[in-house]
Design a protein around this nucleic acid. Structure first.
Length: 729
DNA sequence: AGCACGCCGACT
DNA sequence: GTCGGCGTGCTC
């Protein structure tokens, strides 16, 4: 006797597939199974209960399930429901979504086996020995005290202690320390008197969160840089894990700033917290996933994909820097970790805290609509006023390699006063173009519609869109002139200019070209914090999270780029970036200075930012978005197509547009060739769908997308749908 | 996606 | 004559 089961298969096809299996071993929904699918073996996930075949479907029409991998569901009913919601909302095939919920090791079919992490624990004898220990036994004391204070600690958690290997051996031999059987990690509980004193603002936020209770509610914690958001997070976490709850703390893809993870470890103990990010190998990620799924891991600090971790006892989700665009996945399943976090809060009945100094307009709009509460930390903990931005009108100014004399003078003044200076320029390389002085020829990418950036240090022209690189021509390929000019300024060139102008200062460049490894960045950051660097030149890499106590001047080389962008979110992002960069200045006692170079000193958005800070700018932008019916006042989905010719891509999108269901409040914009039509040798075009309400958007998309593969133009073409796109190109 | 089938060019 | 190019179709 056999029955049928629906199995979600990791292929880009909507829907799931039916397989047969004997009634003696029917796997439950959420179990992995091995199946033959179109001439190959794949691992799928059971998505239905067993059913009897109908009259018209003989069993012989179905393939058998080859192997059942899990005896118990790997994905809980809650996770299966989350997967189904994500598949429906982002219009992505269920098989690929459910696979995305698993770590790579489990996708490959490895057994779901949680290895016990050996942990060391102090014995009674050890506690007694601690009192009798001679004063000179400092290393032993450090180890015993760490174990006394933290309960059970893994070997990795002891690595910071001097001479740990020898001390541990001695303690085990003496019976002072034993290997603990895997125990529920118990968070350290500090007495009120051991906790940092809260500022009145922090105390208000903590109280408001407590008053909101343990059920679902969403809060925007808006705190300026240095206002102590982390301490508020820690208090909320303490409450959530006190009775066995689990906490998800999502951070942007900075990976370079483990401070938050360290703070959580320090406060609650090393066994209580795991990180989940791209720095871990597949095996380690798999173990964190399984620990989270077991309900015995209290806290995970992780990047975007951590929003998809199973947390059976979820009691709190925090999204730090919620405005950060790295929470949106930019390929494949294009989900927003922030939005998934809020959704999980509501489905799994847990509070959600969104933290930012510069919240996204989407979040601010929900605060205005009173769907989210607002908790503000308007003051810095150490009561230095945040720096004031000032615009520097550079029109007609004699530029010195992109820097106006007023800015150069300010740099000199701050250096002489012993301050550090940060120059922000969001453009890598030496110059964004190389041009022939005699005929105007410029170096362009052979695969993309883009100019090549001149990387002088490496002696190469590099395409920032596809990565192609070439040796610059010795003479102009068009007129054989040797007069090639570098036009515009990137980090390399600003660095060079400053080295020449301030030869006595140490100038360091912070960008992804120079700092390939986390280690290199850490080393340079350490040098900077310890005052050995005088001038920092860098990209957004410098805007996030790093504290420099000696920084007194921030210069923004070019604020104008964003003002002319085709992307309607560019100004919002500029405001966030400038506010974050400015927040780096003036942290040690004196108020910092921030100088923003612009050719548009009267631009309303810039003026608003200067006069009314980010909040003022956000209010202005929200007003503009409402007028223009742009998000968050409408909802978008972007259909992208990529083909070998522009005609094919456009024809496909025309055909697609023609069969879009007509619904009130839903309109299509385009199709248009993508702002950069040709990228890595393929032609791209896109069709934007705009809807006044979300329900209408989904009513249009749901029947529409399955049609697209049947269109005649779909052959040899790749298309994808992006719901709530953040980058419109 | 990825694999098979199928129908056209240059090779031991 | 075959090996293999990648266009088209299909996946329970």
């Amino acid at each position: 006797m056999e029955v049928l089961l629906s199995v979600a298969v990791p292929v880009p096809i909507y829907g799931s597939f039916d397989y047969r299996i004997g009634t003696s071993a029917v796997p439950a929904p959420g179990c992995r199974v091995e199946i033959l699918f179109n001439h190959r073996t794949l691992i799928g996930i059971v998505v239905s209960e067993a059913r009897e075949p109908g009259e018209t479907e003989p069993l012989s029409r179905f393939r058998p399930i080859e192997r059942v991998i899990d005896a118990e569901p790997l994905l809980s009913p809650a996770m299966m429901a989350l997967g189904q919601w994500i598949a429906d909302y982002y219009h992505h095939p269920i098989g690929e979504v459910l696979t995305a919920l698993l770590p790579v090791s489990l996708r490959r079919g490895e057994p779901a086996q949680l290895r016990a992490t050996p942990a060391y624990r102090l014995t009674e004898g050890g506690l007694a020995a601690l009192d009798r220990l001679p004063a000179r036994s400092q290393r032993l004391r450090a180890l015993l005290e760490a174990l006394r204070d933290q309960g059970a600690v893994s070997r990795a958690g002891l690595n910071g202690i001097q001479g740990i290997a020898a001390s541990l051996r001695r303690c085990l031999d003496e019976g002072w320390v034993e290997l603990a059987a895997e125990a529920l990690p118990s968070p350290i509980r500090l007495a009120e008197s051991e906790l940092p004193q809260l500022t009145p603002d922090q105390a208000r936020a903590v109280e408001a969160l407590e008053a909101a209770g343990s059920g679902f509610s969403t809060h925007l914690l808006q705190g300026v840089t240095g206002s102590g958001k982390t301490e508020v997070y820690l208090r909320a976490i303490a409450r959530a894990i006190a009775h066995g709850g689990q906490v998800l703390l999502l951070v942007p893809e900075i990976g370079l700033t483990p401070q938050l993870l360290d703070r959580v470890r320090e406060r609650f103990g090393e066994m209580v917290v795991d990180g989940y990010h791209s720095g871990l190998n597949d095996a380690a990620r798999g173990q964190v996933w399984l620990r989270a799924a077991s309900g015995r891991l209290p806290v995970v600090v992780g990047t975007r994909s951590a929003a998809l971790l199973p947390m059976p006892r979820l009691a709190l989700i925090i999204v730090d820097e919620e405005h950060d665009t790295s929470f949106k996945q930019q390929d494949g399943l294009r989900y927003s970790a922030r939005d998934v976090a809020v959704l999980r809060g509501s489905r799994e009945n847990a509070p959600v805290i969104l933290g930012s100094a510069t919240p996204s307009l989407e979040t601010l709009q929900r605060v205005q609509a009173q769907r989210y509460s607002l908790l503000r930390l308007p003051r810095r903990v150490r009561s230095v006023d945040p720096p004031r931005l000032q615009l520097l009108d550079v029109r007609g100014q004699p530029f010195q390699q992109g820097l106006a004399p007023v800015l150069v003078a300010a740099i000199e003044r701050h250096l002489q006063a012993g301050g550090q200076v940060l120059l922000f320029i969001n453009r890598r390389g030496y110059a964004p173009a190389l041009i022939c002085h005699d005929c105007g020829w410029t170096a362009t990418c052979t695969h993309c519609d883009a100019r090549l950036t001149w990387h002088r240090g490496r002696g190469r022209l590099i395409c920032h869109h596809c990565g192609a690189r070439q040796v610059p021509p010795a003479a102009c390929p068009q007129c054989q002139s040797t007069q090639m000019l570098a036009v515009g300024h990137g980090t390399e060139r600003i660095e060079e200019t400053l080295r020449t102008r301030f030869p006595e200062a140490r100038v360091e460049r912070f960008d992804s070209d120079r700092l390939r490894s986390v280690r290199a960045l850490q080393a340079l950051l350490k040098d900077t914090r310890e005052g050995r660097v005088n001038i920092l030149v860098g990209t957004q890499m410098l805007a996030k999270g790093h504290d420099f106590a000696g920084l007194s001047l921030v210069g923004v080389v070019d604020a104008d780029q964003a003002l002319f962008s085709v992307d309607f979110r560019a100004v919002e992002r500029m405001g966030q970036l400038l506010t974050q960069v400015a927040g780096r200045a003036g942290r040690a006692g004196q108020r910092g200075e921030v100088i923003v170079q612009t050719h548009q000193p009267d631009h309303p958005a810039l003026r608003r930012l200067i006069e009314a800070s980010y909040d003022g700018l956000a209010a202005l932008l929200l007003h503009e978005r409402a007028e223009a019916q742009l998000p968050p006042f409408s909802h978008l989905a972007l259909l992208r197509a990529e083909a070998s010719t522009e005609q094919n891509a456009m024809d496909f999108l025309d055909a697609a547009g023609a069969c879009l269901p007509t619904l009130p409040g839903v309109q299509k914009l385009g199709p248009v060739p993508a702002p950069m039509e040709r990228r890595a040798g393929r032609f791209r075009a896109q069709l934007l769908i705009q809807a006044l309400d979300r329900v209408a958007l989904h009513r249009a998309l749901t029947p529409w997308l399955p049609l697209l593969d049947t269109l005649p133009g779909a052959r040899g073409l790749r298309w994808s749908i992006d719901v709530d796109p953040v980058d419109l190109y």
